[in-house]
Nucleic acid binder design. Structure first.
Length: 926
DNA sequence: ACCGCCGGGTGCC
DNA sequence: ACCGCCGGGTGCC
């Protein structure tokens, strides 16, 4: 059970005194305390998949008098423990889907329920079958869900208090009260829920594809016309919430049973807003309401757009970029007006008008541009704006560092001087910690890392002191890992509106989507219970209604443009062709000898681990062997780190041990293996290494240790774990420019020869063509520099260790079309992240295969993206008969896995282990 | 709540 | 009457 980072209340009928999701209005008051109570955000409901329905029980909700929460017949309610209730420590609150309290469970029943919930024996879900309009009490039909092994304890506890649960009825496995609705009877103890009607992976995958297919269809009416008739598009999926904490009008997402069960909660009249919100600050219920559109949204983004009705393209210096009027492949910061979906056609008109606004953003004066170039902490004072409005008016944009400069460029390029905007780039050591200063801006731009580190250093984050008009998460899927500091930091921002821009809203499972919803604070789905009851469980069980519900939800909160989007049958974006070639490289006799020697040695060691059954205990060593082999495929000089793969020796001093561990961790992290944390199965955040040399996220492994006290064991090798033994990764010291001019004489390698041959050939054909040379090994890139110079290539370089300023220079330099600008960029595979735009290149040379094929694809997309005018040719160098070829086959496996991965259960820890072991076998030919 | 329960007022027929 | 009965006040947890 090590991998379950259970918070005190995760997923169990909300036995917390408050919920930061179901009570969005108070979460601001909680502030940093939320950071401590991470239970709700630590997404750990994988166990819920194992839950079965124990049975049903009828009870009563009392005290309706005293609460405002309303329900309708057949509607679901949430049960929430209230241990601090002064009258009864067993108190169980009953809340409606909006998180408003309806009443309490009658105390006699609350007593056993409290015990069951507190001890996590079952998760209790409720439906009000009738009597919803009663004045004082109403019935509640409860269903109890839990692990089979806890069933008897639940039955006993209820019996102890004189309650007898009715056994589950057939067809009620989904917990939608379908038993109530169908009226079918007949006890069934035999069929546990998860075996019922589970869909195959393929089915789910195709269903999910349909989800987006339909969305595209739907979008046809809303495609955006760009300036001068050009078509705008984006490959970003855009999620937007409507209002902080405002419930999603439920009638929008009703379909079939969902409606019956879920009902038009708190909705007074059809299409009306939830009753309970009438006294809340509902911007839409009053003013523009249903006709509020994207345009209105943008108007607050760019306050004076209406004054600049006509496009000012005459003023623009670079008309080539006219298609991109917003950063990042024209991420269109649009937001769909949730309550007005019925007026979709109307909205579509406004979409079109809106693009007029987009084009109205003309280029700023050269002077301003220049000024804006001095980023860092300099405030880009474009002009003042109207201060008469009340409330927050600053938009906070959070993006990965790699796209920070894109945003700055795009904002400055497309904002005309008469659209007065204050932009502050909250970045760098000198960033102002003055909330006042920030609140005076129109837009504050920052990165996830800054957000997280500010948040981490408690009390010192001006970002978290302010109330924002809007918080925009660019590449918002970065908050997928609920345990990541940046996720918590983002969740705790206060904003009136929240937007997420992402191209990959769902990467592994539906839970990814939930993380986004929880940021959007989209009621009721931001609450785990509702999410799970209404979407996740039904969908993974293969319930059609659940899928429709999910589809409906997605439709209502997303805007999507894909590369394939069409308007009137015409593709919106015609990306040039992209071809991938694999070029095999044969090692020289000399290289082969070295390779073979290292391979034999490594193979020997690894097969010994296999026979001992200690492969995973020596995982870092195994990776080390593989790394050396991969390096040897590139160039013999790469393989200089002969740090022998002796285990963590016994006779080491603590300092030596520490250093060894740090080196191992660096090896794991830098080997490009895209290691995941075996606890959260997500990519490593805040990596630490154990004494047994396994790397985990710090929060994950700490939780493991905490929960398994006092004898915590390593999830991967069952060695003893101790908190004080964890070694943190020292801050990446900038090895930039510290790449020592190797003492060794420069020598070529087969791969370098192959590359140089290709480059020179290419130059003969077309001297202007620009290339990316990509490798995971920065030292390899350095080695490539020598022949490039010798052959007179002008090149630039971009790798992860470069400071932001240098990066920007390198990118701008490379993207320039001026004669004499570099034709080659040496690029480290992981540098830059998603948004990096290198469309000047039309050729890519991938020098070494990556573990993760997605990383390669992402890299290719840096030039094969909006703005690319030429066909893109990618050449992957792969050494014949080597670990690289084996990596390709693993890549293929991963691709297949990824294609079918959606909605399948998270692999268990042992599955993860087995996969790793199999991979190692494949890689080293065992 | 068109109930249950509580506790004060009351007390033959 | 240390009861029963009546009828008003009252009402979640």
């Amino acid at each position: 059970m090590f991998s379950k980072n259970y918070g005190p209340s995760t997923g169990y009928g909300g036995n917390r005194t408050y919920s930061c999701y179901s009570s969005g209005d108070v979460d601001s008051a909680l502030g940093f305390e939320d950071f401590l109570y991470t239970d709700d955000t630590s997404g750990t409901d994988e166990d819920l998949d194992l839950f079965v329905l124990f049975g049903n029980l009828r009870g009563n909700v009392v005290g309706l008098r005293y609460y405002t929460g309303v329900v309708n017949n057949n509607e679901m309610v949430a049960l929430q423990r209230e241990p601090n209730n002064p009258y009864d420590k067993n108190a169980v609150k009953v809340n409606n889907v909006n998180g408003d309290q309806v009443g309490h469970i009658k105390k006699e029943l609350a007593a056993p329920l409290a015990y069951i919930i507190d001890n996590k024996l079952a998760r209790v879900e409720g439906i009000v079958p009738y009597g919803a309009k009663n004045a004082f009490t109403m019935p509640i039909q409860m269903s109890f869900w839990g692990k089979e092994e806890n069933k008897q304890a639940v039955l006993d506890r209820l019996k102890m208090h004189g309650f007898k649960m009715a056994p589950p009825l057939k067809g009620s496995e989904l917990g939608f009260g379908s038993n109530l609705l169908s009226g079918r009877a007949g006890p069934s103890y035999s069929a546990p829920g998860h075996t019922a009607v589970q869909m195959t992976t393929e089915q789910l995958k195709s269903e999910f594809d349909k989800l987006f297919e339909d969305l595209k269809e739907d979008d046809k009416t809303r495609e955006i016309q760009g300036p001068e008739g050009k078509t705008l598009t984006t490959i970003a999926l855009i999620l937007a919430n409507f209002h902080n904490g405002k419930p999603l009008p439920v009638e929008k997402i009703r379909c079939d049973q969902f409606y019956k069960v879920f009902g038009a909660t708190s909705v007074k009249n059809e299409g009306d807003l939830p009753v309970k919100d009438h006294n809340c600050n509902l911007e839409s219920s009053t003013s523009s309401g249903k006709s509020e559109t994207v345009q209105a949204q943008l108007s607050s983004f760019y306050p004076e757009r209406t004054k600049a009705k006509k496009p000012k393209y005459s003023e623009r210096s670079d008309s080539e970029e006219s298609e991109e009027w917003l950063p990042q492949e024209t991420r269109i910061e649009t937001k769909k007006d949730l309550p007005t979906t019925r007026k979709r056609s109307k909205a579509s008109c406004n979409f079109q008008e809106d693009t007029g606004f987009a084009s109205a953003l003309a280029a700023p004066s050269p002077a301003l541009k220049k000024k804006a170039k001095q980023k860092g902490t300099s405030s880009i004072q474009l002009a003042k704006r109207d201060d008469s409005e009340e409330g927050p008016r600053t938009t906070l944009i959070i993006c990965p560092l790699s796209v920070l400069s894109n945003w700055i460029d795009q904002l400055e390029q497309h904002i005309s001087p008469d659209v007065h905007l204050n932009l502050y780039v909250y970045y760098g050591p000198d960033r102002s910690k003055d909330p006042e200063l920030l609140s005076r801006q129109d837009i504050v731009l920052t990165t996830y890392n800054i957000l997280a580190s500010d948040y981490g250093s408690r009390g010192d984050s001006p970002l978290h002191k302010l109330k924002w008009l809007r918080v925009v998460l660019d590449e918002g899927h970065t908050i997928r890992n609920p345990n990541a500091l940046q996720t918590k930091a983002a969740l705790n921002l206060e904003a009136q509106r929240r937007w997420i821009l992402t191209g990959t809203p769902i990467q592994n499972s539906l839970k990814d989507l939930w993380s986004l919803l929880s940021f959007l604070k989209l009621k009721p789905f931001a609450d785990r219970e509702w999410w799970h009851r209404t979407i996740q469980r039904p969908v993974t069980m293969g319930d059609q209604a659940g899928l429709r519900r999910l589809q409906s939800l997605i439709k209502n909160i997303t805007l999507r443009r894909t590369k394939m989007s069409k308007i009137k049958g015409k593709p919106v974006l015609e990306l040039p062709e992209r071809k991938v070639f694999i070029q095999h490289v044969v090692l020289t006799e000399e290289e082969r000898q070295i390779y073979q020697a290292v391979k034999n040695e490594g193979k020997l060691a690894i097969s010994r681990y296999f026979s001992e059954g200690t492969v995973l205990a020596h995982y870092a060593d195994v990776l080390g062997v593989l790394l050396r082999l991969r390096q040897l495929c590139c160039h013999p000089h790469l393989c200089t780190n002969t740090s022998s793969f002796s285990g963590t020796g016994v006779n080491n001093t603590p300092e030596e041990l520490r250093e060894k561990l740090v080196n191992k961790m660096k090896l794991v992290l830098s080997s490009g293996s895209d290691e995941e944390c075996a606890v959260c199965l997500d990519s490593l955040t805040f990596p630490v290494i154990t004494h047994c040399a396994h790397v985990f996220c710090k929060p994950c492994i700490c939780e493991v240790i905490q929960s398994e006290q006092p004898n915590a064991k390593c999830p991967l090798c069952r060695n003893e774990l101790r908190l004080e033994h964890l070694v943190e990764c020292p801050l990446e010291e900038s090895d930039f420019e510290s790449v020592k001019k190797s003492d060794q004489e420069w020598i070529p390698s087969s791969k370098i020869n192959a590359l140089m041959h290709a480059l020179i050939q290419l130059r003969k054909e077309n001297p202007a063509v620009k290339c990316l040379i990509v490798s995971q090994f920065t030292t390899f890139l350095s080695l490539i520099e020598t022949p490039l110079r010798e052959s007179g290539f002008v090149f630039t370089r971009l790798d992860g260790s470069m400071p932001q300023k240098k990066r920007v220079e390198a990118i701008q330099c490379f993207q320039s079309s001026q004669a004499g600008s570099p034709t080659i960029m040496l690029l480290s595979l992981k540098a830059g992240g998603v948004g990096l735009n290198l469309t000047a290149a039309s050729r890519v040379f991938l020098m070494d295969p990556a573990w993760n094929p997605a990383a390669e694809d992402q890299c290719f997309d840096r030039c094969h993206r909006l703005g690319q005018k030429q066909a893109v040719v990618i050449t992957k160098f792969v050494v014949k008969n080597s670990v690289e070829e084996n990596m390709l086959s693993i890549q293929n496996k991963k691709r297949k896995l990824a294609a079918g991965a959606f909605a399948t259960k998270k692999p268990t820890a042992s599955e993860v282990k087995q996969t790793k072991i199999n991979e190692i076998k494949t890689l080293i030919d065992l």
